[in-house]
Write a protein that binds this DNA or RNA. Structure first.
Lengths: 236, 236
DNA sequence: TCATGTGAAAACGTTCACAGCA
DNA sequence: TGCTGTGAACGTTTTCACATGA
């Protein structure tokens, strides 16, 4: 649904596919490290818990660069996926809230890799402001608007408790973030153009337990093959 | 796809709906706190960023208990959603890895609420083992198998770095968890019947940035209305 | 021979539009 | 009149099945 006059865009990549690409990429990167050079849709699919035909459809949307009879060149595939996901971009991220969760995020492996970089970390607790946390020095939330032009965040991460989350979100929107990723267990309101994504332990647990509840405790292997892992997506 | 002879199960609830129910529930609970008594599908939809018809479809799957011309009784609706999600269950959860992330999880609001309870927290770091973290005392991973029968975890949460994640997962599977929720940036292998869900900052960021990249920086309100927030679900 | 790439079919999920009821 | 509940239309995603090419 990202309509518009895009001109020379190579192909429309469905949202469902976009959600799987990072998973493929991670698997392929791991395989590269293990010394593998090529992979079949069958292999990749079984590692990603995805039907092989789906893998082929997904990859064919990026262009046709598999070799019939052999499979895909892993290194090349990784490069193509990265290109499709737009790794070349620069995505400054502001993290607000440096409790345990915020600290974990700021230190996360694979955060600064990829186009993402932490443009700033913010809190209001005087005990935390000024502290060095991982790669950054925590600043007061009031300084959010004072970031250099090149560091103006495109994405805001809300890692506060539920109570201040809406206020923090408003502050992020005010400095122009175009997307919010929130870990706070609260429902947020943002203006329509801002992308909003909730990451939530209790929601994940509830969805999981729903499926567990209607699954026999000791089920037969056959029926289980059909039970795919609850996806990554919009789901998202 | 949870086929089988379930007999008197009320209705099949699609996965997409299941992923939205906890969101509705959270909004409704907040509205209750604000003193609201009823809600229309329009109101609930706009808060959840979901089409009103979809809200009605979702809720009608739980049974028909709206009042035409008025809307839904919020308290009753919350109860129905909870019943559908199976709140009545008991879901012991084992958390492995008590770095910043594990600490955040163990202390999370809304963890122990709902049927979930922390049956145990495990690590291998001698500096952490024995420590009181939030509501629990951390035990050594080797003691995972020693939990009382009533505390045998149904769900395992992996909050370790990528390197030991597979090993930890194997240990969890060995003690009989039926679902794994992992925050480790690694691809895991589990036997087919075990549900597996990845929660991953860098994947979320990548998906978000993909949509941002093909979205005009200062887009018109009309086009944006179509850009729904990247969902929760499976996520998804 | 083996595995990709892709039309066509099936399954699934969303949205529309309106009948039905308070 | 206002809002739910739901068939039917629509759009998207998945899966099948096989022609194609290394």
């Amino acid at each position: 649904m990202v309509g518009g006059a895009e001109g020379s865009s190579p192909r429309r990549i469905p949202e469902a596919t976009v959600a799987r690409l990072p998973v493929y990429e991670r698997i392929l990167t791991e395989m590269l490290r293990s010394g593998d050079l090529t992979v079949s849709s069958e292999q990749l699919g079984s590692r990603a818990r995805v039907n092989a035909a789906k893998v082929r459809k997904d990859l064919s949307l990026l262009g046709s660069f598999g070799t019939r009879g052999t499979g895909y060149d892993i290194a090349f595939l990784v490069a193509q996926i990265q290109r499709a996901l737009g790794v070349d971009g620069d995505w400054p991220v502001a993290v607000v809230g440096l409790g345990n969760l915020g600290r974990a995020l700021v230190n996360a492996e694979g955060f600064s890799s990829r186009g993402f970089r932490i443009a700033g970390a913010f809190d209001i607790d005087p005990a935390v402001v000024g502290q060095q946390v991982g790669p950054v020095v925590v600043r007061h939330l009031d300084e959010l608007g004072l970031l250099e032009v090149g560091d103006r965040p495109t994405i805001g991460v809300v890692a506060t408790p539920a109570a201040p989350a809406q206020q923090v979100t408003d502050a992020l929107v005010a400095v122009g973030v175009r997307a919010i990723l929130t870990f706070a267990p609260a429902v947020l309101e943002v203006p329509a153009p801002v992308l909003l994504r909730y990451v939530d332990l209790s929601i994940d647990l509830q969805v999981m337990s729903f499926f567990l509840a209607r699954q026999p405790a000791e089920p037969l292997a056959d029926e289980l093959a059909q039970l795919r892992a609850v996806g990554l997506t919009p789901r998202r």
